[in-house]
Simulated assay, not measured.
Amino acid sequence: MHPSETGPVFAGSIPSVYAQYLVPLIFESYAADLASRVAGHQPARVLEIAAGTGVVTRQLAHALPPGTSIVASDLSQPMLDQAALAGTERPVEWKQADAQHLPFPDASFDVVVCQFGVMFFPEKARAFAEVRRVLRPHGEFVFNVWDRIEENEFPQTIVQAISTLLPEDLLPFITRIPYGYHDPVVIARDLAAGGFTETPAITFLTALSRAGSPDIPAVAFCQGTPMRDELEERGPTTLAQATDLATAAIAARFGPGDVTGKLRALVVSVKRDAPAVHR
């Protein structure tokens, strides 16, 4: 994932916790959805940006024919290392890359796909312009973003529970970045600023997040995201305290055993227009 304007870093122990806890909790069902949408375009060459620990990459490797080339990129090398460690059922190309400066030739991919990554791009229109540049004419850009935090029950519950431990003058990382880019009008405006002339198709997709115990969402969000850095900056015991508070809040709202919470995201698809023909 790309760092935001406030500089969250997916490094240290975050990639392993992210892969172990957060990926199965909230990402897997949406990854399968994106891979299915990409496969429907029957592409010859696919680029994934902000690939993280590879949850979509693994789905793409399964859903696409062996002859389809897959390049999976991310700004964070530690996240890519975690993805490569997990592996895929067939070879893919892993590439460290900034989505705002993609190291690929013009018109070199049929589809560009991004799962829950565009929220992290400091200059979204610039990143979208890079996506448009590397897409072939009539190629497709497919991505998803989280809906507002109030529509995503586990993170909402956790942020409310630990709010007193976070800086009072700044929205928490979770609210500010991952769940802060959900307005369809803004998304369409940024795509247009990036050069996309087609109207994007934007749909809402609701899913369920399940975990075997309340501590799993607590660890996932408190320790597997850059919110961990915010908490650790508050003192040596704050991360453990926040995890305990989050666990108690999840248990109070969803029960002490298996827990289920609502997820909601926006799925966006937009075509790259063909170059104008001058006669």
Rank of each mutant, 00 (worst) to 15 (best):
T88S: 13
V56P: 01
A51G: 15
S36M: 07
I26M: 15
N144V: 01
V113P: 02
A125V: 01
A31T: 03
V38P: 11
A35T: 01
L191K: 10
G12N: 09
D74M: 06
G194E: 10
D215R: 14
G180T: 02
F143T: 02
P122S: 10
Y21F: 14
R126Y: 03
P275M: 05
L135Y: 09
A61K: 00
A220I: 01
T6K: 14
V186T: 14
H41C: 06
Y21G: 02
S269E: 11
R126W: 03
V9N: 13
I162K: 15
F141Q: 04
E150W: 07
L231S: 01
F104G: 03
S209R: 11
T157V: 10
E233G: 12
A84F: 05
A97N: 08
A19E: 15
Q160A: 10
G54Y: 00
S69H: 14
M79F: 12
D74P: 03
T260L: 11
R132Y: 06
F104P: 00
E232K: 12
V23P: 06
S76A: 14
V131Q: 10
Q100H: 07
G40K: 12
M227A: 11
P43N: 10
V112Q: 04
G255S: 10
G261W: 05
L60C: 03
H62L: 09
E168R: 15
L205V: 11
A125Y: 08
L231V: 02
I49E: 00
W94Y: 14
R136V: 07
L80M: 09
V259E: 04
L85Y: 12
T206V: 06
E28L: 11
V113S: 13
P8E: 15
L34E: 00
L266A: 14
A246P: 03
A249G: 09
R45N: 05
P155S: 08
A99F: 01
E230H: 09
D258A: 11
Y21S: 09
P105T: 07
G195M: 08
V131S: 05
E198D: 12
